[in-house]
Design a protein around this nucleic acid. Structure first.
Lengths: 294, 294
DNA sequence: ACGGCCGATACCGCCTCGGTATCATCACCG
DNA sequence: CGGTGATGATACCGAGGCGGTATCGGCCGT
């Protein structure tokens, strides 16, 4: 008699209909029927009277409904008390520029549900620090984009993001279905400030640096990068599927390895709170769009 | 946060030692450690301070210990109340002669643990009814021995029992390691009364009836069968591993298909109480001797 | 009589759970 | 100060449970 099973039973007892109860539980009807049957087997008595018109509670079922509600409520209180006593913890989350956007809001909402007492501080980082403050110790956990030098850092891939090149809409190449890096060999390429993570630098300058023009143009933020495309006609790379300002178009690159949207934390600083955040992040990503999970 | 996990945590919190807690829970240490870690992840806080000397509770852990105990106790009460309200039910169990013996006592004990209010009535049947009263409606569930005609009856095999031949200790064949049915072709064979289940009859007269002497000698009980061996020198078959009276020996038969010790109930009369009994029986058999499970 | 709704069943793939083997760390002790 | 034992953590594996899809059976309504 686990709490999960009791939650199932309460749903059926209140809906008096397996299909609706299953929908409320975000599952399908067959496993729900089976779970209730197992519960009846375990308790050794009939809880529900099934009929084609609907479901009725037996006396034992009605009693269990009441008791189960109380038990579940108490379980919720227990969890709340324990997490509360653990102290009002603050979790500092670093995000890489606009990477998080609507994913971040969904994640924050889910996290607050699990830890009502927790505070989340957001620290948005520019493109010069792919760890989004992790390595410098400014944040506990980072929502960012790989690849970067991850020594001492644990990363879990949330989804893969194909990368495209940003062009002015009036660019001759702007309306192609796709492009290859070689098509951009003669363009002006940006670079990051000196001291930027070399793996990161290499990736965003086309994975293989040689034979491509190293421009003096330095960008620090996504906005700078896009503006540089508009004003200077430089090459801009970015993951697909993000909003673009007027006058710009993004064309998929076929020979650019996809970027991984990851959640990362210091390998030596794994706390339950961080693990919890990571777990919730993975769940949120999975429920959001299972097809894109890497 | 399931009740199972809380039971684990309570064990560790009370033993303050993962190994001892695991032993108390009848499991090994690694999955216990993992479960606790997952619990900490879910709650987002540290519950236990590990050290090579032992384990200490954090304040949150101490609180959870208290609350979890209360929650588990309430869950037990809920189960008790619900099963109690379902009424003092009586389950009639049929057993085939002495088949059940110590298995039956263990099963009854386990069943009373789950259903303190239930009453168990035992009805011991002789060898003339392999369904032990199931088909005649005298019992709800039967602990018996297959094979028999099981149309309309559901059976679950609990274990396989090799069959041997019972001989007087002074019989020339009594000290052989094993025998084949052919070695007994010239012996006198018993039979069951007319009207006995034909599958059952065929099995205990050597699976293939032809070429073997059909004696007029009719046995109804295991005792009669054994006495008949002692007094008349007939052939007696029985599963190995049971106690024998003085002066008799059992020799394994190599070409006799093993008999299945089964639990059986009417296919059209499946109630939660019966399912519960079956489930417990399977668990008891498994924990008793996993190697012999069929 | 027949179509539709509802719960039950069969079957499948994945993930969790518990088990075995092994490692890392630290206390204790010679 | 290094060996040794104890303790918890980790890696990996196989089985079972759980949720999914597809389908069945049965009663109700028109």
């Amino acid at each position: 008699m686990e709490l999960r099973t009791l939650r199932y039973f309460v749903a059926v007892a209140e809906e008096l209909h397996f299909g609706r109860a299953a929908a409320r539980l975000r599952m399908t009807q067959p496993p729900l029927s089976r779970a209730i049957k197992q519960l009846e087997t375990e308790l050794g008595c009939v809880l529900l009277l099934r009929s084609p018109t609907g479901v009725a509670l037996t006396p034992a079922g009605a009693l269990l409904h009441e008791e189960a509600c109380a038990l579940l409520a108490q379980a919720d209180r227990v969890r709340a008390h324990v997490t509360e006593l653990a102290g009002p913890v603050t979790l500092t989350v670093g995000t890489l520029a606009d990477s998080a956007e609507q994913f971040g809001t969904r994640l924050a909402a889910a996290y607050r549900e699990h830890h009502p007492a927790a505070r989340i501080l957001i620290r948005e980082s520019d493109l010069t620090d792919p760890t989004a403050g992790l390595r410098s110790g400014l944040v506990d956990v980072a929502l960012t984009r790989a690849p970067f030098d991850d020594t001492g850092i644990t990363t879990r891939t949330l989804r893969l993001e194909r990368v495209g090149v940003v062009l002015r809409t009036d660019d001759p190449l702007a309306h192609r279905e796709s492009l290859r890096l070689a098509d951009l060999a003669e363009r002006r390429w940006f670079r990051f400030p000196d001291g930027t993570d070399p793996v990161w630098q290499a990736y965003w300058t086309g994975s293989v640096e040689d034979g491509r023009r190293r421009d003096r143009l330095v960008v620090r933020t996504a906005r700078e990068c896009l503006q540089s495309v508009l004003w200077n006609g430089t090459v801009g790379l970015m993951p697909l599927g993000h909003a673009l300002p007027e006058g710009l178009t993004v064309v998929p690159l076929t020979d650019m390895p996809p970027s991984r949207f990851v959640i990362a934390w210091r390998a030596d600083g794994t706390t339950p709170l961080i693990r919890s955040f990571v777990r919730i992040a993975e769940t949120v990503q999975r429920t959001a769009d299972p097809t894109r999970v890497g």
